[in-house]
Simulated assay, not measured.
Amino acid sequence: MDRHRAQPGTIPSSPEQAWAMLAAGNARFMAGSPAHPHQDVQIRHRIAAKQRPFALFFGCADSRVAAELIFDQGLGDLFVVRTAGHVTDPSVLGSIEFGVGPLGIPLIVVLGHDSCGAINAALAAHQSGTIPGGFLRDIVERVTPSIISVARRGALEPEEVEREHVRMTAQLLTERSTLIGERVSSGKLAIVGAEYVLTDGEARVVTVVGDAGVEPSV
């Protein structure tokens, strides 16, 4: 038996176990046969005093990209932070550090997706030279480094910008947060960057920082 795979009914304690459980949940979701775990009265009572999530999701705020549904998990399983285009700021980093530090979560998943409005807005601004006003400007500015990175390699395709933004976000977490960087270096934490495909429900691995027992598939 795979020593990295958590036993049924146990909470994953390693990055490998956490990703294996998430991958199994995504497979159920894609197949249209979700188990809807941890959504009953008993689990509500059991976790009321203390939470023990096994994975932290930093994803886009898009209404079609709900991590608990995509990965068929329930109450107390996931610690979720979401912003448009999964852009970071100090409060986002603080929230993620809370999950990694006090909660001891072994896996971070950066979850992007196709047809991302934030990516499209940043691409439109890049192509037109017109930056939107208000706080939308902040989102566009934080996505722009990913656009520049892709532009250096050739044509600007939205799908490749989305994937590059996932890669750069995962790397940024280790660079900006000493806590995250140290946990990854020690093997206690890994980061999986994934791209969610809206039409078929699949979460495809784009990048991995550390060891989560999985390799990129796109």
Results as ranks from 00 to 15, higher is better:
residue 127 Q to Y: 07
residue 186 S to K: 11
residue 16 E to P: 09
residue 120 N to H: 10
residue 193 G to W: 07
residue 144 T to H: 14
residue 141 E to H: 11
residue 160 E to S: 15
residue 23 A to S: 13
residue 85 G to T: 05
residue 6 A to Y: 03
residue 32 G to E: 08
residue 190 A to Q: 03
residue 88 T to D: 14
residue 12 P to E: 10
residue 142 R to M: 07
residue 30 M to G: 08
residue 161 V to R: 12
residue 80 V to G: 10
residue 174 T to L: 01
residue 201 G to W: 08
residue 112 G to F: 03
residue 166 V to E: 02
residue 191 I to T: 02
residue 122 A to T: 05
residue 67 A to N: 01
residue 83 T to E: 12
residue 150 V to L: 04
residue 84 A to D: 00
residue 38 H to C: 02
residue 166 V to D: 05
residue 75 L to G: 08
residue 152 R to C: 03
residue 130 T to L: 14
residue 214 V to L: 01
residue 93 L to P: 03
residue 57 F to M: 15
residue 153 R to H: 14
residue 193 G to D: 05
residue 176 R to T: 04
residue 156 L to A: 01
residue 52 R to S: 15
residue 134 G to D: 03
residue 66 A to I: 15
residue 73 Q to K: 15
residue 58 F to R: 09
residue 63 S to R: 07
residue 56 L to T: 13
residue 212 A to E: 02
residue 99 G to Y: 06
residue 65 V to P: 02
residue 134 G to T: 07
residue 8 P to D: 06
residue 13 S to V: 13
residue 59 G to A: 13
residue 116 C to K: 02
residue 117 G to W: 11
residue 130 T to S: 15
residue 24 A to W: 13
residue 17 Q to T: 04
residue 86 H to G: 04
residue 58 F to A: 05
residue 83 T to G: 01
residue 117 G to I: 09
residue 13 S to N: 09
residue 198 L to T: 12
residue 211 D to P: 08
residue 209 V to N: 00
residue 202 E to I: 00
residue 212 A to M: 06
residue 186 S to A: 13
residue 183 R to E: 14
residue 73 Q to D: 07
residue 23 A to W: 10
residue 75 L to A: 06
residue 190 A to K: 05
residue 25 G to Y: 01
residue 193 G to V: 03
